[in-house]
C-alpha cells in the first residue's frame, strides 16, 4: 500500500506532466468526521478556500461524479452553469475554472473519491486530456487501487 502523504506529490507531478492549471482530489473523510466528502488535495490552486467546503453527495462537481460514478467533461463553463447557478459549484468560482474534467476514483469496487483536472481558459479541456485523467485514476492514487470491479 502506498503512503497517504503520497497524494500531494502524485498530483503535483501529474499536473506538471499534463499541463493542467489545477488538479484536485476529493476524498471521503474518516468515520470521526462523518464520512463527508471534501477536496483534500489540490495542486495549482489559487487559494485554500475549496478545501474548507463540505461537498454534498449529488451536488457540485465532486458530488455529481461521486454519486453517479460517471466521468464529467465540461469544455466551456458557460454551457454548464449560468452565472446565477455558479454558486453551486464553488470550485469553479474560487479557482476560476473555465473548462475541466472530473473522473471517479475507484477503490475496492466503490467510488472512493474524485479526480479533477481543470483550466482557467475555455476549450482547453479535450477528450485526450480526459483519457489522461481516466488513466491516472485507474492506475491508483495514494492508497486507492483504482479498481471499479472486484474479481474474487
Amino acid at each position: 500500500m502506498k503512503n497517504i502523504a503520497d497524494h500531494q506529490t502524485q498530483i503535483d507531478q501529474f499536473r506538471v506532466e499534463t499541463d493542467f492549471d489545477l488538479v484536485a482530489i476529493a476524498l471521503i473523510e474518516p468515520a470521526e468526521n462523518q464520512y463527508v466528502l471534501k477536496w483534500k488535495y489540490a495542486s495549482g490552486n489559487i487559494s485554500t478556500r475549496i478545501k474548507k467546503i463540505l461537498l454534498q453527495s449529488g451536488k457540485g462537481i465532486a458530488g455529481m461524479v461521486f454519486k453517479t460514478g460517471k466521468p464529467l467533461i465540461v469544455k466551456d463553463r458557460g454551457d454548464f452553469a449560468q452565472n446565477d447557478d455558479l454558486f453551486n459549484f464553488p470550485i469553479l468560482v474560487f479557482e476560476n475554472l473555465r473548462s475541466f474534467g472530473a473522473v471517479p476514483l475507484w477503490h475496492n469496487g466503490r467510488v472512493a473519491g474524485v479526480l479533477l483536472g481543470g483550466y482557467r481558459e475555455e476549450g482547453l479541456m479535450t477528450e485526450e486530456k480526459m483519457v489522461l485523467l481516466t488513466q491516472k485514476a485507474s492506475s491508483g492514487i495514494g492508497n486507492l487501487d483504482g479498481k471499479d470491479l472486484i474479481l474474487h
Binding site: 471521503i28 462523518q34 464520512y35 463527508v36 466528502l37 453527495s57
Partner: peptide, 9 residues
C-alpha cells in the same frame, strides 16, 4: 459510510 452520508443528506 454510505448510510452515514445518506443520514446526513
Amino acid at each position: 459510510a454510505t448510510l452515514t452520508r445518506l443520514l446526513d443528506d
